[in-house]
Nucleic acid binder design. Structure first.
Lengths: 226, 226
DNA sequence: TATATTTGTTAGACTAATCTAACTTTTATA
DNA sequence: TATAAAAGTTAGATTAGTCTAACAAATATA
């Protein structure tokens, strides 16, 4: 039962991670299409086709011509290992090196490809076995387990409900910087004061501040816990 | 006066670093030959020739057919920037993640290629602006300056001289593990008790321990300060 | 100094990852 | 259901880094 193969290229690792992320996005059916993959990775569909054939050869994905792509168990475990590294490095950058919320991703994209089992495990220990990264996403354990947490979108709450921010759904720089401007971070308390049916926007109270209105798009980008 | 170009490939960076290291080795004339480079990098001479042409195009080295290779000022500054990253990461691994003396190099070889000016500077700050890495080698500053230190080889000392270990010349695993076995680390005090002319070996006292004999090869692999 | 040895270069080929352009299959829709 | 649109594939080319084998230049040595 040894799933993690270390002889993957930088690029192969990225394809596996992309596939894993896409499978999280479409929870019900964790498959992806060639164009979807290509768009996600910023390459042309032709390129993705070639790579997918290669990953199939290595038994990391199941795939046949014109069909959907699915990770095999081995492919999934390898993807999870990369995600684990990514999120541990993000946590390191944020907590130890004072990187801001929106700066960590880009550097972690590079760091996640460093090959050293010892490094990952020591880093995890150094960070005190964190369960969630700076964006609130769960950090897979060494055995591949992924911590889970109850969370709903802010947009799902009813009037007068109280909650705490647990994660961001949208990790774009522009959204993260907006959150920073609003002093919203993981753990911030929010109360829904009013729901505006007209456009789906919400009037909310952030911590103890003055009420403020946020758009439906905003409310659909933030995960909270009731 | 901006020397550091960030558009260097992983491989190009390695060639620059190798050239820099070779130039330290032959202090008097900091040039290198094609075969020397190739051997150092573990590639064939033909490969090195191609790469050197490319580096010449980019004005990182001066080089002409059948001639010696020399770093330009830009090439040197880029090499120093990589060395800086390498040694800072080694320090991080050793001090914060409990890696041993002989484990840090391999992982730092990978980490040194991460591209992020902010990361390097923040890491340096996090480590409290160390001047020397775990092997006692100087860590270049952000401006390219390299801290210097008085050091001589243990083999140069006379009988009855006292010294402290400041760096290792040989960083091979087998030597580092031997040092660990002898409880020698940076800062350890050593007294030369006797020089054996026959084979250049020394009788030394390490800290407060019992006298012990070490070979000439050993004494020529350790840097100390009187 | 003539020749052998060492050092370095060139030419041609390979692999991984990418592209474009043309083609094929699947799916959606009129 | 016929056809247009979307999705996916193939073929052929490109680039970076590497190799081997054959060759050329420089250096060492008899």
């Amino acid at each position: 039962m040894f799933y993690i193969c270390s002889m993957l290229s930088y690029t192969e690792e990225n394809y596996l991670k992309a596939l894993l992320k896409l499978s999280f996005q479409n929870e019900d059916k964790p498959e992806a299409g060639t164009n979807e993959m290509a768009a996600y990775l910023g390459v042309k569909p032709a390129t993705a086709t070639d790579m997918l054939k290669k990953l199939k050869e290595k038994e990391l994905v199941t795939y046949k011509k014109y069909g959907k792509i699915l990770l095999t168990e081995t492919g999934k475990q390898n993807g999870i290992a990369i995600l684990r590294k990514h999120r541990l490095w993000e946590t390191f950058l944020y907590e130890k090196l004072d990187f801001s919320w929106d700066e960590v991703h880009e550097v972690a994209e590079q760091l996640e490809h460093i090959q050293s089992a010892k490094l990952v495990d020591k880093l995890e220990e150094f960070l005190n076995f964190p369960e969630f990264d700076p964006h609130g996403d769960p950090i897979p354990k060494a055995n591949g387990e992924i911590p889970s947490i109850d969370k709903v979108l802010l947009s799902e709450l009813k009037e007068d409900e109280l909650c705490k921010v647990v994660a961001v759904k949208d990790t774009s720089t522009v959204f993260l910087q907006y959150l920073e401007k609003l002093s919203i971070t993981i753990g911030t308390a929010i109360k829904v004061l009013e729901r505006i049916d007209f456009d789906g926007s919400l009037s909310i109270q952030i911590a103890d501040e003055e009420p403020r209105n946020v758009s439906m798009k905003f409310a659909e980008s933030l995960f909270v816990k009731r």
